[in-house]
Simulated assay, not measured.
Amino acid sequence: MVAQKKQLDLFDDDSSHSTDLPLSTVGKMLQLSPQKFIKALADRKMIFKRKSSQAWEAYQTFIAKGLFRHYTYMGNTPIFN
């Protein structure tokens, strides 16, 4: 029962914590391997990789809809883009 409570808390609308999750974590929550989940998003043209970068990026249309957020890190501190 405690495990279920923790999972439900991820979707709680409490603004005191962030519900932003890495793509790999979302894949795991959906019981998919992170690679399969990320490949499915890329196949559907929701995310892409620049040749000069190893990070996945979402297309601007999906960011504008609020489905994705980009983060840039300075050390361990995320800077929201």
Rank of each mutant, 00 (worst) to 15 (best):
K6D: 10
Q7R: 15
L8I: 09
L8R: 14
L8Y: 10
D9S: 09
D9P: 00
L10G: 03
L10D: 05
F11E: 05
F11L: 12
D12I: 03
D12K: 11
D13S: 12
D13R: 11
D13A: 12
S15L: 10
S15A: 10
S16N: 15
H17Y: 13
S18F: 01
S18W: 01
S18T: 15
T19S: 13
T19D: 11
T19H: 15
T19N: 15
D20T: 11
D20L: 14
D20H: 11
L21S: 06
L21W: 10
L23A: 10
S24N: 08
T25K: 15
T25A: 15
T25H: 11
G27V: 01
G27Y: 00
K28F: 01
K28E: 05
K28Y: 02
M29D: 02
M29I: 14
M29R: 12
M29T: 02
L30Q: 07
L30W: 01
Q31R: 13
Q31I: 07
L32N: 05
L32G: 00
S33P: 00
S33K: 14
S33C: 05
S33W: 05
S33R: 11
P34W: 02
P34M: 07
P34L: 07
P34E: 04
Q35F: 04
Q35A: 14
Q35D: 12
K36F: 03
K36A: 13
K36Y: 04
F37I: 05
F37Q: 01
I38Q: 07
